[in-house]
Computed example of a mutant assay.
Amino acid sequence: MRVLAAMSGGVDSAVAAARAVDAGHDVVGVHLALSATPGTLRTGSRGCCSKEDAGDARRAADVLGIPFYVWDFAERFKEDVIDDFVASYAAGETPNPCLRCNEKIKFSALADRAVALGFDAVVTGHYARLEDGVLRRAVDADKDQSYVLAVLTAEQLARAMFPVGDTPKPRIRAEAAERGLAVANKPDSHDICFIPSGDTRAFLGAKIGIRPGAVVDSDGRELARHDGVHGFTVGQRKGLGLPGPGADGKPRYVTAIDPESGTVRVGSAEDLRVWTVTADRAVWTSGRAPEGPIDCVAQVRAHGGTAPAVAEAVGDGLVVRLREPLTGVARGQAVVLYRPDEVGDEVMGSGTISGAGGVDETVGEAAAEVNR
């Protein structure tokens, strides 16, 4: 096959491209310029799209003996990822920009251009596995990225390749060194790539501005003032602007955010427990929504936050009724559904969380329907 290897300048994408070459594919490397003002150097493991990253990707392509290009996707990245990120926080949501980048940039904009140029698939260094079109967790659980890939449609998965998902990260670094790739020991990037300072609140404040509101307790009593709901997320414990714990001596957490009134509600850890999750923009990796309720394991954060559940397609969205409560569930996050077998690594579908609530009396009914 003729495949396009997305090369970020890191070790994972370099080894993924190398494995595609080894498999006999006709490989072309491409680095995505996602920043309109790329820095000269990264700050340790923070940031991306620097001139250093582009240079590292080019050198890796040279070692592999494959053609290499740099494509400018900065404007598309700004519109589909950065602007979406800012708008979501302004609306009191907690978005995942990596998830949106995969959906809108790497497996939409990039893949569409690749297909238009005659390529059959896009190769990336994501830690996930594809087996007969089925998306699965990576072998290395600590590096697994199936959660942020669960927004991909069956059509997008059909033209994707994840060559490193079957290998633990230490072995990937060792392989890179064996191949003579200079990025073998390059630090992994983390946090939000377009906020190299790591100060998300300052970044959002500069974009959104001051929109004062109140921090209130569960009874609606005002406890403090704030400069904008973009500085908070459900489940947050620190940086609330409060002098100390609640009257009961226990920590307080953000339990709800109302962007219209600018109200941030805080409460106890128990107040964070939810039993029902609703989501919009459902994606089913099989290409079609299930008929009736299905048993699954729901995950609401990239690492952690899982519970057995019953899910059901409702229009273009889905409803997930949890058998065990989850905490820190925020609008804008993704809920990803995994098959509840002994392995539990197959992605069934996903949706963007639009709401969460307490005990739902239909949990038992849905569970009974599944078990019939």
Results as ranks from 00 to 15, higher is better:
I208T: 05
H226K: 02
R252F: 11
Y253L: 03
G228P: 03
R265C: 13
G262N: 01
G241C: 07
V266F: 06
S261F: 05
S261V: 00
D191T: 11
E270Y: 15
N185S: 15
D199R: 09
G220P: 01
P245N: 01
G205D: 10
D258M: 02
G213P: 03
D227G: 13
E222G: 14
S189G: 10
R265W: 13
G231E: 13
R201H: 15
V254H: 03
R179Y: 03
I208W: 09
L242K: 06
F232N: 02
I195V: 10
P245T: 06
L242E: 00
A182W: 12
R265Y: 12
G209I: 12
D248L: 00
A269T: 14
D191V: 10
G198H: 00
I208F: 08
E270I: 15
G244A: 08
D227L: 15
E270G: 14
A177C: 03
H226S: 06
T200P: 13
I195S: 02
S218P: 13
S268E: 04
G235K: 05
V216H: 07
S189T: 08
A177T: 11
A206H: 13
I195L: 02
S268I: 11
D258F: 01
G241H: 08
V266M: 04
K250V: 11
Q236S: 06
S261G: 02
D271A: 12
A247T: 14
G241W: 11
R179V: 02
L223P: 00
K186M: 11
C193T: 13
G220T: 01
I195Q: 01
D219Q: 14
I195E: 00
H230Y: 12
D217M: 07
V264I: 01
A214W: 13
S218F: 10
L204D: 09
F232C: 04
D199W: 12
R265N: 09
G244Q: 09
G262R: 00
G235S: 09
D188C: 11
G244S: 11
E222Y: 13
G246H: 02
S189V: 04
V264C: 01
E270L: 14
A256P: 03
E260M: 14
S189E: 08
P212Q: 10
V264Q: 00
G213I: 09
L240V: 10
P243F: 07
A214M: 13
I257F: 04
V215G: 06
G180C: 01
R221E: 15
D248P: 01
I195G: 04
A184G: 00
R201T: 15
F203M: 05
V216G: 09
A224D: 00
I257M: 06
D217K: 04
H190R: 07
E270R: 14
V215M: 08
R179S: 04
R265A: 12
V229M: 11
F232R: 02
R225F: 12
V234N: 03
D199S: 07
N185K: 15
Y253H: 08
H226E: 06
R225H: 13
G235I: 08
K238I: 14
G235Y: 02
V229T: 07
E178S: 11
P187M: 02
D258H: 00
A177M: 09
F203R: 10
V254Q: 01
S268M: 01
V229N: 06
G246E: 10
D191Y: 05
G213K: 06
S268W: 02
G244K: 10
G241F: 09
V216L: 04
S189L: 09
G228E: 13
D191N: 12
V229S: 05
K186G: 07
P243Q: 05
H226F: 07
V183I: 10
